[in-house]
């Protein structure tokens, strides 16, 4: 499944990141690498973007980007 389909507060780990290289590389550089544990903290009031927590910090990204992040349940 992708991060897009995850529930809030559901802990998942990363399998892979897809999409065009520029954005994929940025997401990977930000620490979204294989086996990284992360979870969605909240969605913005209008549903997009989302705030995720990983490696002890908060990152916000759009739902379009979340669709590119393949994850599995921990």
């Amino acid at each position: 499944m992708t991060l897009f389909e995850c529930e809030i507060d559901q802990e998942v780990k990363v399998i892979s990141v897809e999409g065009i290289r520029k954005i994929r590389k940025r997401l990977i550089d930000m620490g979204i690498t294989t086996n990284t544990k992360l979870k969605i903290i909240r969605k913005a009031p209008l549903g997009d973007p989302i705030e995720i927590k990983l490696r002890g910090y908060s990152l916000s990204l759009r739902m379009d980007d979340a669709k590119k992040i393949k994850v599995e349940k921990v």
Binding site: K22, I23, R26, L27, M30, P49, E51, Y57, S58, L59, S60, L61, R62, D64, D65
Partner: peptide, 10 residues
């Protein structure tokens, strides 16, 4: 189309 919102929330 390249606009993204990858932003750290400090």
């Amino acid at each position: 189309s390249g606009s993204t919102f990858i932003l750290e929330l400090p």
